[in-house]
Amino acid sequence: MLEIRNIHASVEGKEILKGINLTVKAGEVHVLMGPNGSGKSTLSNVIVGNPQYTVTAGTITFNGRDLLAMPPEDRSHEGIFMSYQQPVEIPGVSMNNFMRAAVNAKRKYQGLPPIGGGDFLKMVKEKRELVGLDADLTRRSVNEGFSGGEKKRNEIFQMAMLEPQLAILDETDSGLDVDALRIVAEGFNRLRTPQTAAICITHYQRMLDYIKPDIVHVMLDGRIMRTGGPDLAYRIESEGFDWLKETTPNS
């Protein structure tokens, strides 16, 4: 589904990603670990096409198509979703209007007519219940005045609305208490199908207990230093990252 080959990327002239290779297949859940500043969010932003980040070398294909040639909105329409580490507040734009615009943009891309008002509200209600988001929040401005936990839940709500093929969760578990984490993780699990895949950035074992990853990668200084099974995550949890610094990156 996703093929990342030798990606180098920089921000404000500084090279952050120094040759990333990563393959994600349908049905897989990948976990990306690594110390703060190692480039995990940068990689996510490069995949979704954030213009703040410049790709200087390498290729990314999504279902065989050149992802780097697509504008961000088309990457979204093709089925890529990123749950933000820090969701953005948009004062004045209501969640409902925001989501209706997003849903209709995707439908337009697929050659479908705009969604009817009644169908839209039904869909909102259904997806809202899936992630336990308060009805009141969908009437408020996007993320404005939401608590940290509500913002993360709102990200998963949007994911549910857009039904992406590939979801990138950037520290969606950070700042959530035990109950909120369970709700978010269960919502995520319910959205999984054999046709979807996910890249989940996290520091915490408790998230991994819920989402049961297939493959774990560890990033250090802009490179993937080690790839393994779920046991790699347990070793990181108990030993930290230092032991990896002596090893050489896998290719």
Binding site: V48, G49, N50, P51, Q52, P71, P72, E73, S76, H77, F81, M82, Y84, P87, V88, E89, I90, P91, G92, V93, S94, N97, F98, M99, A101, A102, A105, K106, Y109, S141, Q158, L162
Partner: peptide, 27 residues
């Protein structure tokens, strides 16, 4: 930042600009 957040959700920059301007005028 808001425009890119909207683009990630599939909203084109033109539409995003409209939404931001309309919501600014709303109150």
């Amino acid at each position: 930042t808001a425009l890119f957040y909207m683009a990630q959700r599939g909203i084109t920059p033109e539409e995003g600009r409209l939404l931001l301007q309309q919501s600014f005028a709303w109150d």
